[in-house]
C-alpha cells in the first residue's frame, strides 16, 4: 500500500513543485501584509475607517484584517491538496490494470488514495503551522490558537471536498474527473444550504435583498466559527472521510477495475 501512496505522490510531483513556489510567495506576501497592517498603508486605512464614523468598530477592522490572513492560510492547503491529477494520470496510463494485478487488496488500494490526500494535507498543515508561528509573533490580528483553528478548518473543508471527489471518481470511473469535482462542490454546497437553511435564507432575503438585516456580525460569524470552532469541521471531515471510504470500497468492489 505504501508503494501506491508513493506512486500517487510521484504523480503529483509537478503539483508539489508548484506548492513550494506558492508557499514561498505566501510567506513573502503575508509578512508584507502583516508589516503593512502594523506600520504601513493598511494601518493608515484602518485608522481612516475608524475615523469615518461609519459604524465600524476596532473589532470590525481587526476582523477585516483576519479575512486576508485566512486566505493566506488556505492558499497552501488548496494548492497541495488536489488529487484530480492522480486520477487523470492513472486513467491515461491504464494503471488500474497494473494495480489490480498487485498483491494489494481492493480496500487497501482505496485506502491508499485517502492516505495520499491526508499526507498532503498533513504537509500543508505543517508548513502553514510554521507560517502561523512566524506571523503571530509579528501581529495581534489573530492569536496562534486562532491561526491553528483557521488552518485546521481549511484542511477539514478541503478534505471533505477530496473525500467526496474520490467517491465520485470511483463512482464515475476514469476520464470523468472534472464531473467528480463539480459534483463534490455541489454536494458540499447543498449540504451547507440544508444545514444552515435559515441563515442562508436570511442572508439572501435580507442582506442581499432589502438590506434591512444588514449587520456586520453576518460576515464575522463564519470567521469566528473557523477561528474558534475548527474542531467541529474536523469532526465532520473525519465522518465524511469514513463514509466516503466505505462507500468507495463498496462501489469499487462492485465495479472492479476502477482504482
Amino acid at each position: 500500500m505504501k508503494g501506491l501512496i508513493l506512486k500517487d505522490l510521484m504523480c503529483l510531483k509537478k503539483q508539489l513543485t508548484t506548492f513550494v513556489y506558492v508557499m514561498a510567495g505566501t510567506v513573502v506576501i503575508s509578512i508584507l501584509y502583516v508589516l503593512s497592517t502594523r506600520y504601513g498603508n493598511l494601518a493608515r486605512v484602518g485608522e481612516q475607517l475608524l475615523d469615518q464614523n461609519n459604524g465600524m468598530s476596532r473589532v470590525d477592522v481587526k476582523n477585516l484584517g483576519s479575512e486576508a490572513m485566512v486566505l493566506f492560510m488556505f492558499l497552501p492547503i488548496v494548492c497541495v491538496g488536489d488529487l484530480m491529477n492522480v486520477f487523470v494520470a492513472d486513467g491515461k496510463a491504464g494503471f488500474y490494470k497494473v494495480s489490480s494485478s498487485l498483491p494489494v487488496p481492493l480496500y487497501k488500494r482505496v485506502l491508499a488514495r485517502f492516505l495520499t490526500i491526508y499526507t498532503l494535507f498533513g504537509l500543508g498543515v505543517l508548513v502553514d503551522a510554521l507560517l502561523a508561528v512566524l506571523l503571530c509573533s509579528m501581529t495581534d490580528i489573530m492569536s496562534l490558537g486562532q491561526f491553528l483553528g483557521v488552518i485546521f478548518s481549511g484542511a477539514s473543508i478541503l478534505s471533505i471536498y477530496s473525500a467526496l471527489m474520490i467517491l465520485y471518481c470511483v463512482l464515475l470511473g476514469y476520464g470523468r474527473e472534472q464531473y467528480a469535482q463539480v459534483l463534490a462542490l455541489l454536494t458540499m454546497a447543498a449540504a451547507f444550504v440544508i444545514i444552515k437553511f435559515d441563515s442562508v435564507r436570511f442572508f439572501v432575503v435580507h442582506v442581499l435583498g432589502d438590506g434591512v438585516g444588514f449587520d456586520s456580525s453576518v460576515f464575522w460569524k463564519p470567521l469566528d466559527f473557523i477561528r474558534e470552532k475548527g474542531y467541529v469541521l474536523l469532526g465532520i471531515a473525519a465522518l465524511v472521510s469514513v463514509c466516503s471510504y466505505l462507500l468507495s470500497v463498496r462501489i469499487a468492489e462492485r465495479k472492479r477495475g476502477v482504482i
Binding site: 510521484m10 494520470a89 491515461k92 496510463a93 491504464g94 490494470k97 497494473v98 494485478s101
Partner: peptide
Amino acid sequence: AALREDVGVVFDEMGFHEF
C-alpha cells in the same frame, strides 16, 4: 491479493505512468 504475490502479470499495454 495474497496469491498475486507469486504471480507476475504482463499486459498488452504497459500500464506504468509515462513519467
